[in-house]
Structures are given as C-alpha cells and as structure tokens.
C-alpha cells in the first residue's frame, strides 16, 4: 500500500512535466493534476506497474471549474476568458488497496482529453456521459455519442454552468 505522496513522487520521476501540482486538502481528498494529453500513457503505467497495479477505475467524472474570467483589455473593453473543464479520475487497486485521484483540466474552447477506455473499460460509458453533459471530447474513444440526453439534442451541454434552457424543443415551447 502506497501513500498519496509516494505515488506522486513516482509519477513525477517518470513523467516529469506532464504531472502538475499535488493538491493536498486534508482532511478531505487529495488529488494530482495531470496533463490531459498524457493521461493515457500515465494510466497505462498506473495499471501495469508491479508496485501500483491500479486495476479499478471507480469513477470518471466531468467537472466545470467555473473559473471564467473577465479581463479588461488595453482599449478598455472587457473580454471573456473561457475557463476550464476537468475530468476527475478516482482509481484504486483491488490487490494493494491504495487509491489515487487524478484531475486533468482542458480549456473550454478546446476541451480535449485522451480516452482511457482501452485501459479501464469502465471508462467507456463514463466518458460518454462526460461528453454528453460537458462536451468534453475524448480522443480515441471508439464510440463517442450522447448517452443520457436524446441523440438529436442540439442545445448544448446541460451540466456546464453557462448552460441555458432552449426556448423551443422539437417545436414545443419550453416551458410549455
């Protein structure tokens, strides 16, 4: 069984810049920031390294960080800087009983994260849900479609904080 710090140091040593800060917000959950385009490689290492053996992805969740900013530009006008969307991975090892939380953030205007579907198959539907609710694109996912919302839903991604209800759905006024 390894502690959060040990795993962090191991990852930092192996992957260097792809690993960001380790946020330790004890007594509650600690997590490690990870580069969204390196997550596949890191996950592969986490699963197959003999000292780690993280074989179970408990939960993959999308998250809107709600950190949109308004920046005053040189000519005095105010421009919106879009915030970030995140994907949070809760992983555990059924043999060693240790757990780790990874978080990778991507900008809202280009929300691309590597899929980990080929490493933990439970990511398949979870990633589809994160796409459905937040519009996060999972690169190399074999079947990235909406899952809970209707397939023909065209009014954006409902769990984003800036989501607005559509005025009409299929010609019906909302609220009807």
């Amino acid at each position: 069984m390894k502690s959060h710090e040990e795993i962090y140091n191991l990852l930092k040593e192996k992957f260097g810049d792809a690993i960001g800060q380790s946020i330790t917000n004890l007594p509650v959950e600690s997590f490690i920031e990870v580069s969204p385009l390196k997550i596949h490689e890191i996950s592969y290492f986490l699963r197959d390294d003999n000292e780690l053996l993280f074989d179970n992805l408990m939960l993959l969740s999308g998250l809107d960080d709600m950190n949109d900013k308004k920046v005053k530009q040189e000519d005095g006008s105010i421009a919106d800087v879009p915030g970030t969307l995140s994907v949070v991975y809760h992983i555990e090892s059924t043999s060693f009983r240790h757990k780790i939380v990874l978080k990778c953030s991507c900008p809202k205007d280009k929300p691309e994260v590597e899929s980990v579907n080929s490493i933990w198959r439970s990511a398949d539907w979870n990633e589809r849900e994160a796409y459905d609710m937040f519009g996060i694109i999972f690169l190399n996912h074999p079947d990235l479609r909406r899952i809970l919302m209707p397939y023909d839903w065209e009014h954006g991604f409902p769990l984003r904080k800036d989501y607005k209800n559509p005025e009409f759905y299929q010609g019906m006024k909302v609220p009807y």
């Binding site: 917000n25 509650v28 959950e29 997590f31 408990m58 939960l59 969740s61 998250l63 709600m66 949070v88 809760h90 939380v101």
Partner: peptide, 22 residues
C-alpha cells in the same frame, strides 16, 4: 471548499458520491 468521493455497498454494488463544494 473541498471535494470528496465516498462509496457504500448498495444491494447492486458500489454506490459512490463525488461531491465538490465551493
């Protein structure tokens, strides 16, 4: 401002709640 993931053994398996507080 913190986050937590807790899970319990439901009749159907692991039910987890991931709660983020701001």
């Amino acid at each position: 401002e913190r986050q937590i993931y807790t899970r319990v053994e439901n009749p159907r398996g692991e039910l987890g709640y991931f709660i983020v507080s701001k």
